[in-house]
């Protein structure tokens, strides 16, 4: 089965599972998870240093071959997201940025409006922008026009593990977007990830479900296999389930009527 590699921001990804560094019981598990899953892109966040504690460096657990995707978590406005993105780039984290602007602390829904504004600014500054959004087709097209390198619609609220609750809306993005669609947030099980890939998503981003599993290293592998299986199923064109409609009254019977009634190329 031939698959095209996924290209985002000029980098190629043969593995379509993207992962995150949040919520691990021990950051040393991250390296093991990356090795077992083969994930080639991982998110990190930027925070103020706790001046009283030492703390370890999360970047030490991420091999140089893995693309870092800093997020703008904590930002509540486009301006804040822009600032965090610039800091992350200056810090030597590369050009990739996941825009995450959340103004709603109850459901943690991304603010699409602020996210679009931040995307417009950062794409002009040469960032590889991956905006995290509610799946909204007209917005996705605007993001595309603004120069987003991908769109990352949520499947369900962050950390909820509820799966693809927004499947039919994501399907519209998959069908109409010309940049990769990466399903982010809400994916709780490998079967959810497989379903997203079967639909034609270009990749999925999974953090909580891997990090909080009893064995994150094994779960990383499980997600990676599910993503590959889903992708393969998509490429193989699954059989449809609907049956042929049975004719109640023929619509084309008239074509068999007297020949001179019809145009015919046959003599």
């Amino acid at each position: 089965m031939n698959d095209e590699v996924l290209i985002i921001g000029g980098r190629t990804f043969s593995n379509r599972l993207f992962t995150g560094t949040g919520k691990f019981a021990d950051n040393r598990l991250i390296a093991g998870m990356l090795a077992s899953s083969g994930s080639q892109m991982i998110t990190v966040a930027l925070r103020r240093v706790d001046l009283s504690a030492g703390g370890d460096n999360i970047l030490d657990h991420i091999p140089k071959t893995v693309t870092l995707l800093p997020n703008t978590s904590g930002a509540r406005t486009a301006g804040e997201a822009v600032r965090i993105a610039r800091i992350a780039r200056e810090a030597g984290c590369g050009d990739f940025i996941k825009i995450e602007v959340i103004t709603d602390t109850k459901y943690l829904m991304p603010d699409n409006y602020e996210t679009l504004q931040a995307t417009e600014i950062l794409a002009k500054e040469g960032f590889v922008v991956l905006p995290y959004v509610l799946p909204d087709l007209p917005l996705a097209k605007r993001l595309e026009n603004a120069g987003a390198a991908a769109v990352m619609p949520l499947g369900a609220p962050i950390g909820s593990n509820r799966g693809l609750e927004t499947a039919s809306l994501i399907a519209l993005l998959v069908e109409n977007c010309h940049v990769p669609v990466v399903v982010d947030a809400g994916i709780g099980r490998p079967s959810h990830a497989a379903a997203a890939m079967e639909m034609g998503a270009d990749a999925v981003l999974v953090n909580t479900a891997i990090a909080t599993a009893q064995d994150p290293v094994a779960m990383g592998r499980a997600f990676s296999l599910a993503v590959a299986a889903g992708r393969m199923a998509f490429l193989a064109h699954m059989a449809e389930t609907s049956a042929l409609a049975r004719a109640s009254s023929p619509l084309t019977g008239f074509l068999n009527a007297v020949e001179n009634e019809c145009h015919s190329t046959r003599p």
Binding site: T21, G22, R47, L51, N207, T208, A211
Partner: peptide, 10 residues
């Protein structure tokens, strides 16, 4: 001054 560092995040 802002002193920042990378931490775990999704």
């Amino acid at each position: 001054l802002e002193l920042l560092r990378f931490v775990g995040g999704g």
